[in-house]
Nucleic acid binder design. Structure first.
Lengths: 161, 161
DNA sequence: GTAATTCCTTTCCAGATCGAACTATATCAC
DNA sequence: GTGATATAGTTCGATCTGGAAAGGAATTAC
């Protein structure tokens, strides 16, 4: 605003920044809705996610954290809470004693069976403002963006900074 | 992949769910990158966001929380930390004594001036995997989705649940 | 004016998150 | 085997987050 001469100040305005800002906002709103939905089930969003990744046979904690793109240390506490609610349990892996398998209990499976379809339906319903073709388009763009983000990112612009 | 006979289990598979899952993942990765970028500047992501919304003249805390789509109560602590770092300060609003204005200090403005352009450049660079047209397309889709999310959401599907 | 209501902010608590340090186990090098 | 390295999970401290409750202040109803 106070820069004279060239108009480089227009704060953000690049389509990339706008897209990213919107992505954050959409994510935030979806999260708020999900939190609200799951509240009546006495589950938090991360608790529900872990429940979705756990199986009766057991899944290593680090496999879950990898899929959730978070650190192992996050899950310790969340799993503790799920255990206290009776939805999962920890079992040592006989093959690798470092591993603790997260096992869905019968109660957990039942809970999941009851609320997962409804939750998915709600998520889909909230995207009704997009046509079927637009949903596909969005998914493809995000897929491409996600793939691009996995690469090490060759620094090139502003090499001096 | 391993599903035999009837595919009733296909777990998610709807384009909506896939799109939403990708949106979460992209957001998560972008956030990780941002956190890493700002770390060398001794700033967290939310601290940086507040810095971006604050002005020298002062902005009501609730205006910032509205823009950040978060609760007022979140910002109290973050602002406290920014104050202890000397980047903002609180000033009472003479017009409305309930309001506390968040004011960018000279040090805060200087910090922002130094890191904001670089940060924006990095965000843009991370979206290089999309063409210019695709970025526009993504922005438009997210804009439409965001607008749709603001509406009260007329419950229609699964009305009995 | 007073009372009721609404609004702005802070405080408190539970939960989640990251990052670093630590323990235990596994694997590799030799 | 021993030692170095890597991996799995936990613990801890700092930060962020939402939600509820409380305080002070503005606004409205009367």
């Amino acid at each position: 605003m106070s820069v004279q001469s060239g108009p480089p100040a227009a704060d953000q305005a690049t389509p990339e920044l706008e897209a990213y800002t919107l992505l954050r906002q959409v994510n935030s709103m979806m999260d708020t809705y999900n939190r609200f939905d799951l509240r009546s089930e006495d589950l938090t969003v991360p608790q529900f996610m872990i429940l979705n990744y756990a199986t009766a046979d057991g899944v290593p904690l680090s496999e879950i954290s990898a899929r959730m793109l978070c650190d192992n240390s996050n899950l310790t506490g969340i799993v503790d809470r799920l255990i206290s609610k009776g939805y999962v349990q920890r079992r040592p892996d006989p093959q690798d004693r470092r591993v603790s398998l997260i096992c869905l209990t019968a109660a957990g499976a039942e809970k999941l069976r009851r609320i997962k379809p409804r939750h998915h339906a709600r998520v889909s319903r909230r995207m009704r403002s997009l046509s079927e073709a637009q949903v596909h388009e969005l998914r493809n763009l995000l897929q491409q963006l996600f793939a691009g983000l996995q690469e090490p990112v060759g620094e090139d612009d502003s090499p001096s900074a």
